[in-house]
């Protein structure tokens, strides 16, 4: 890992009312590193990701991105967010704008780029995700996989240093997942710093430099994919992976355990 991590999370806590979702997270993501965050639902992995670009305000702790403290009260959060691309589970394309306008409007309004420059960068990024022919379509006419690739292109058009992915394939039909993962793999190969919350174990195993397993608001295990997925040292990780990899074999669990 390089000397200054691109993302640095220090002793992060987050509560929603009485519900303590993050309970002391420490995490570093180096430049060009791809980190997959896995864990059962409710483990706080999405909340952690959303704290990195301050969509959620942490209760306690620090987050630094590219040396800037995101959690500092006087930070220009809009300026910091320009350096962080985010991709959502529900795509969140702007439905009243065409695909190209989805890519050009943020560039023009936020980065103050000129009309031609924005259009050129939009076309370039649509080509990267393989959707040049959909430039004039509206989001509603696209498949989920296409919408998600447009959402990735929209984030890339802003020239981010870091990309955050919040379960990018969870809302997709199984046969559409591959196209989105292929785009993400391409980004990883190009050296983009990526933090990916996902349930796609194959992707995590093959693309991630590190895999982080979270449960109950803490990081249980952090290591290479071979360590965490291939040979987990904690019982909780093993249990989670066995249920994920072979859901049909799971036993009926007692219900009192959960909240």
């Amino acid at each position: 890992m390089s000397s200054t991590p691109e993302i640095h999370v220090r002793d992060l806590y987050k509560s929603f009312g009485d519900n303590e979702v993050l309970r002391g997270i420490d995490l570093e993501v180096g430049q060009g590193e791809v980190v997959c965050v896995i864990g059962p639902s409710g483990s706080g992995k999405s909340t952690l990701l959303r704290c990195v670009n301050l969509l959620e305000e942490p209760t306690k702790g620090q987050v630094l991105v590219g040396g800037t403290e995101v959690t500092h009260p006087d930070v220009d959060i809009d300026a910091v967010r320009r350096r962080i691309g985010m991709v959502f589970q529900q795509f969140n394309l702007f439905p009243h704008l065409s695909v190209t306008e989805n890519l050009t409007l943020p560039q023009r309004r936020v980065l103050r780029r000129g009309k031609e420059e924005a259009a050129r960068i939009a076309a370039e990024n649509l080509r990267r995700v393989g959707l040049s022919e959909k430039a004039d379509a509206y989001p509603a006419s696209l498949s989920g996989g296409q919408q998600q690739r447009v959402a990735i292109a929209r984030a890339l058009a802003m020239g981010p240093e870091v990309m955050l992915f919040d379960e990018p394939t969870s809302a997709l039909d199984p046969e559409l997942v591959g196209d989105v993962l292929a785009v993400m793999r391409m980004l990883a190969d190009e050296g983009m710093t990526m933090m990916v919350v996902t349930h796609e174990m194959t992707f995590a195993r093959e693309v991630a430099d590190r895999v982080v397993f979270m449960d109950g608001g803490v990081i249980v295990e952090d290591g290479t994919p071979a360590q965490v997925i291939g040979n987990p040292s904690h019982e909780r990780t093993r249990h989670f992976l066995s249920r994920l990899l072979d859901p049909a074999m799971a036993d009926v669990e007692e219900t009192e355990k959960g909240p």
Binding site: L55, R81, R82, M86, Q90, N92, F94, P106, R109, V110
Partner: peptide, 26 residues
Amino acid sequence: PKGQMEAARSLGFSHARAMVSIIIPQ
């Protein structure tokens, strides 16, 4: 949907600009 504001904010829109460019037209 709430995700529209979140998407706009994560692209670097300020709250006011997101309202004018993204939320109010919808």
